[in-house]
């Protein structure tokens, strides 16, 4: 029973990592950059949802919707103002800009909401739990896992079937050739940021529903872990981000439960190192092709 409990907790935490990792992996795949401010977009999303629930008295669904809209606008604005002017610049310049953007968001949150941790209202999602034999599963856990599955299926369909989704795959593979098809690359990248940021809002709410302490640095560690998950699964690959995220969550919870609570994070990164030694492009990453 404890094993099953841990497994479900791991799947739930892993689902949150996976949803965050999607933002990293899609932006990397299409814009070829690491958006290190992504974790902080999650934090902003959580704060907006917090305000919606706590101060504005919004019903949960509406609070999440407002948070998603806010994050989408934020993500597209960040891309347009900070990253787009650097499209032709060295990748190191973009990376440093992303780190700067991360600090800017954290400090903005500090200014608006202060340094004191807020306690995220979780009663709406945690009040009910389901009993399966001796197993007790909270609604938050179920919603998290379910949300993850829905997001994965929709994104897979989106990239496989829709015109914009296909355009994204083209830009991801060969930006120049995509332009020659008539694809507007800047718009495609904007849409990618919009999707990634909307997902970040969902991840923020789910994260704070399970771990209800909200402060300006809330997004940092999950952000880094999700980035790890994206690399683990093969950065640029949507199923890879899912697999990497879920595995990372499960490994983290099992590591903490059976090996050492203190070493939980270290175990996660040790596994990452081993995987990358054996398979440098990640679990589902494509082998790097030499351009002829």
């Amino acid at each position: 029973m404890i094993f099953l409990d841990n497994l479900i907790n791991g799947l739930s935490l892993g689902s949150i990592y996976a949803i965050i990792a999607l933002g990293y992996t899609m932006v990397y795949g299409i814009a070829k950059m690491l958006n290190f401010a992504h974790g902080d977009v999650i934090m902003i999303g959580a704060y907006v949802a917090f305000c919606g629930l706590q101060y504005w008295g919004l019903p949960p669904v509406l609070a999440i919707a407002v948070s998603m809209i806010a994050c989408t606008v934020l993500g597209v604005t960040i891309e347009g103002l900070a990253y787009r002017p650097l499209r032709q610049a060295a990748s190191l310049a973009v990376l440093i800009t992303a780190i700067g953007m991360s600090y800017l968001l954290q400090n903005t949150a500090l200014m608006i909401w202060g340094a004191n941790p807020k306690s995220f209202p979780t009663t709406f999602i945690n009040s009910v739990s389901i009993r399966l034999g001796r197993l007790n599963i909270s609604i938050a856990t179920l919603i998290t896992i379910f949300a993850n599955i829905v997001i994965m299926v929709s994104l897979t369909l989106f990239t496989a079937k829709t015109k914009m989704g296909k355009a994204m795959r083209c830009v991801s593979e060969d930006r120049g050739a995509a332009e020659l098809m008539g694809i507007n690359v800047n718009r495609t990248i904007s849409v990618t940021f919009a999707i990634g940021s909307a997902l970040a809002a969902i991840a923020g709410v789910l994260l704070c529903s399970s771990y209800p302490i909200l402060q300006p640095t809330t997004g940092s560690m999950p952000g880094i872990k999700a980035f790890t998950a994206a690399v683990f699964g093969g950065i640029g690959s949507i199923p890879g981000a899912m697999l990497g995220g879920v595995l990372l969550g499960v490994i983290e919870i099992f590591g903490k439960a059976y090996i050492s609570t203190e070493l939980g994070d270290a175990i996660v990164f040790a596994v990452l190192i081993v995987v990358l030694l054996v398979k440098p492009t990640g679990l589902l990453g494509r082998p790097i092709r030499e351009k002829v």
Binding site: R169, E173, D174
Partner: peptide
């Protein structure tokens, strides 16, 4: 030049 077809599609 170099064809540049979308290899994964």
């Amino acid at each position: 030049e170099g064809r540049r077809v979308f290899q994964q599609m």
